[in-house]
Design a protein around this nucleic acid. Structure first.
Lengths: 342, 342
DNA sequence: CTGAAAGCGCTAACAC
DNA sequence: GTGTTAGCGCTTTCAG
């Protein structure tokens, strides 16, 4: 006991943490016995277990994750790198991955890159230094070199690319159905017998934009061109607002927005001009579901669910961890959610 | 060299990570020399440093954070527990804290409680197990027992409560100016000579609601009651919508919303009824700034900035870490941001 | 059923 | 300038 109190008095502030050693000294047992007792190992007698568990609780013992990771080389920690968490879609994705992680005994280290490739690399280093078990990553549009990410595979750390994925083949990707979503939106417009559509798309350099634009155009145009289609590109809500304002003179009867960001810009103009939706102008968008519910009537949208994508990414991760070396490119289905805007 | 390759071949997959030992074996130097060289220690000769750094880069060395933390008892890791990241205000707060953390060489572990006290405790344990250096926490409304959080102080881990803080005194808190914000909004309404105000407030059990309601009422009423004030409570956007619909018959000329959530509900009704803002009805809200910009005209709001609060929380944390034992209750100033809605 | 001992990767006296 | 050594807290053979 004397030794115990001596140790106790000696410790620096940080050392107030209870350790196996401390418990073992108080109980007069070995460290390994304490360790086993706390994990409910069959070798240990029930009486011993009880004594140990009791004291551990009294002393508010929490295992040192660093020591465990160091010893076992199994951090039970996932990394998640995303351009920004201030986004409905990524919010939903993260919430979903986090929930699954927690349920499966993993923690999640969430890092934002702010669409800066340099910060992205810093974040990646951080993940590596913390010896993450696996990585979920959505690369920024300006990321040209994905080598650092692929290097993780040499270390047997699975990498699941999500949403914005590299254009190479030998990696795991989970995506929303870009082409299909745009096609579904286009079909919904066709079915409503619309005549003149303004399609506002995102940054033309992004793969997602190219895919959605192409699919949308094709679907609209293959209907023996009875529908007039105007398309334009906006990289922000404010740009979308300007574009909307400019093209309104051409009297479109329907607006298609490629994303929430664009929808928000377009809807400001709808409010500004006092347009009635859908009488004066019909609106349809592609969305995770947050933005369309801001308006009256609620906007009809093709749902690309961040939540579902998160679940998919997680199961893909678990498959990799389970030993699957099968490279997968997975896509979640989209769904038309009818509001009153079309 | 033989030994090196043997080791290499032997290692399990995870062990592909380069370690100081591996470098030391290849270079025929001791581990400590490598360690020093990599930290640019003055004792080490420039030639040695160069050789070491070069090989480390070739081998893609990343220090093992777990080993360092274990050894130094300094994790350079902050924990952040928040009800939800799907929220403009918390988004801004987190982004701000994360940025500051990164700039100061810390990482951030973001955890969501989903307003569930049980998950909150799980998250807290996780933080402790990872031996965080400090904690930022916004408690959920249902959290009754804050003892576990205060216990961190015994371990010399600073805790900064933010936004939703406990009602006790001996802890560090950073908050937005609840009463003042409501007062400012009320004054803005008074200055515009409005006659009949509908104030929609949040969940009546929350401290934030009580404070804002009281300040708002007092300010409106002290103007020799020329202004008629109707107040009601909504716990969600949908409820706000219903309340708005119900009270519209009483013909208020101004709507005050306590939060983004409520604003969104109220604005759906404005759209539904085709009301002109501010001619038919004026609107003012308290917000971080995201939601008011969704509408045309943009909504006038009293800004309670998540970004500023994050900065404040961080500096408060650094003060604690710097040895300050001074318990602080800090508040950020609010600011009236004029849109066109009042 | 319990203990002793080695070692995960790293840092920091302390030697020389 | 460089090496030796001990030890952070934990798991896990191997012995008894």
């Amino acid at each position: 006991m004397c030794k115990f109190f001596l140790t106790y008095a000696n410790t620096s502030s940080y050392m107030n943490n209870t350790t196996l050693k401390k418990i073992s000294e108080i109980l007069g047992l070995s460290i390994s016995t304490i360790s086993r007792a706390l994990k409910n190992h069959p070798d240990i007698s029930d009486k011993t277990k009880q004594r140990v568990v009791e004291l551990a609780e009294t002393l508010d013992y929490e295992p040192n994750a660093n020591a465990i990771n160091l010893r076992t080389s199994n951090s039970k920690l996932f990394g998640l790198i995303v351009p920004s968490i201030s986004n409905w879609f990524y919010n939903a994705f993260i919430a979903s991955v986090e929930e699954e992680s927690r349920k499966n005994g993993y923690s999640l280290m969430i890092l934002q890159s702010g669409d800066d490739p340099l910060i992205e690399i810093t974040n990646l280093k951080l993940c590596r230094q913390n010896r993450i078990t696996g990585l979920f990553v959505c690369i920024s549009p300006d990321t040209t070199n994905i080598e650092p990410f692929l290097k993780l595979k040499e270390l047997d750390i699975p990498v699941i690319f999500f949403d914005k994925v590299p254009e190479i083949n030998n990696c795991n990707k989970v995506c929303v159905a870009d082409s299909l979503s745009a096609t579904m939106a286009a079909n919904a417009i066709v079915n409503k017998k619309k005549k003149k559509v303004l399609g506002i798309f995102g940054n033309p350099h992004l793969l997602i934009t190219k895919k959605r634009l192409e699919a949308f155009q094709n679907t609209i145009n293959e209907k023996v061109n009875k529908i007039k289609l105007i398309t334009d590109h906006a990289s922000s809500s404010v740009e979308a607002e300007e574009i909307m304002l400019r093209h309104l003179k051409e009297k479109p009867d329907t607006i298609f927005c490629m994303s929430d960001e664009i929808l928000i810009g377009a809807m400001k103009v709808v409010q500004q001009k006092g347009l009635k939706v859908p009488q004066d102008i019909a609106v349809i968008t592609i969305s995770n579901g947050g933005a369309p519910k801001l308006y009256y009537p609620e906007i009809t949208y093709v749902e690309t669910s961040g939540h579902k994508l998160g679940k998919l990414a997680f199961s893909s991760m678990m498959a990799c961890l389970g030993g699957s070396t099968f490279i997968q490119e997975l896509t979640i289905e989209s769904l038309l959610v009818e509001g009153g805007s079309l």
